Amino acid sequence: MAKRKNQTSGKGYLELNFDEGYGRITTVTKDEEFVYDFFKILKDYDGKHISFSLSEELELPTVDEE
């Protein structure tokens, strides 16, 4: 069976405010900042069978910082 995959990916800072009803992802490049509506992205997948993954990048301490 042939399949087609619909995927959205990005990397940035997630800001959620459920009280005010917004979610934003902000990506920062060397020259610009881009803001995306996280809930609008999720809306594209509403009612569909999905898989998801979230990850966070953390700086590791160097030997002299321990």
Rank of each mutant, 00 (worst) to 15 (best):
M1I: 10
M1L: 13
M1Y: 08
A2L: 13
K5I: 15
K5G: 05
N6F: 15
N6V: 12
Q7E: 15
T8S: 10
T8R: 10
S9D: 15
S9F: 11
S9N: 13
G10H: 03
K11E: 14
G12K: 00
G12N: 03
L14T: 06
L14K: 12
E15C: 05
E15L: 09
N17M: 05
N17L: 03
N17F: 02
F18W: 09
F18N: 11
F18E: 11
E20H: 11
G21C: 08
G21K: 05
G21A: 09
Y22W: 08
Y22S: 04
G23F: 03
G23K: 03
R24I: 03
R24Q: 07
T26D: 04
T27C: 11
K30V: 08
D31G: 09
D31V: 07
E32A: 13
E32R: 13
E32L: 08
E33G: 04
F34T: 11
Y36M: 08
D37E: 12
D37V: 07
F38R: 01
F38H: 00
F39P: 00
I41T: 06
L42D: 00
L42C: 15
K43S: 09
D44G: 10
D44S: 13
D46Q: 13
D46P: 00
G47F: 03
H49A: 13
S51I: 09
F52M: 13
F52V: 04
S53P: 01
L54W: 02
L54K: 07
S55R: 15
E56F: 07
L58M: 10
L60H: 03
P61T: 10
P61E: 12
T62V: 11
T62A: 11
V63Y: 02
V63T: 10
D64Q: 07
D64V: 07
E65C: 02
E65M: 05
E66R: 09
